[in-house]
Amino acid sequence: MIVMTKDTMQIVREQDVVPFRNRVREYAAKIGMSLVNQTKLITAASELVRNMLKYANGGKVLIEIISKNAQTGVRLTFIDEGPGIANVQQAMQDGFSTGKSLGLGLPGTKRLVNEFDIKSTLGEGTTVTVIHWKNGR
């Protein structure tokens, strides 16, 4: 896997969501991602960044354009130093929420993107990585 461009954005408040999403859209458009895929990616990005704000008081996001096996894609890495998730498997289920919400953010994001990975340690924080390929389904 080759990383072609790298960018980081700090997310500390609600007002950072829209500029962040626009940045992701720019990168996706730059590699020629279709509108449907762009929309999937920024919706996923939106979910993860909102979780970061709501449950971990913010964090940072790494935005990268990557290339693997002649495929180009966008990789987003959401890193926070929040409370972490006690039971990741449970958090990944549709409808599970500790925030009186729909509980669709994490499982929905996983369905929206091509690759999804979550690592969380209680008391240390959570890192979610997603990849969406230019010609992803």
């Binding site: 999403r21 920024i42 919706t43 939106s46 979910e47 919400s101 953010g105 929905g108």
Partner: peptide
């Protein structure tokens, strides 16, 4: 531009 779970709610 995008409908995420928050907008949907």
């Amino acid at each position: 531009p995008a409908v995420d779970s928050l907008v949907a709610q």
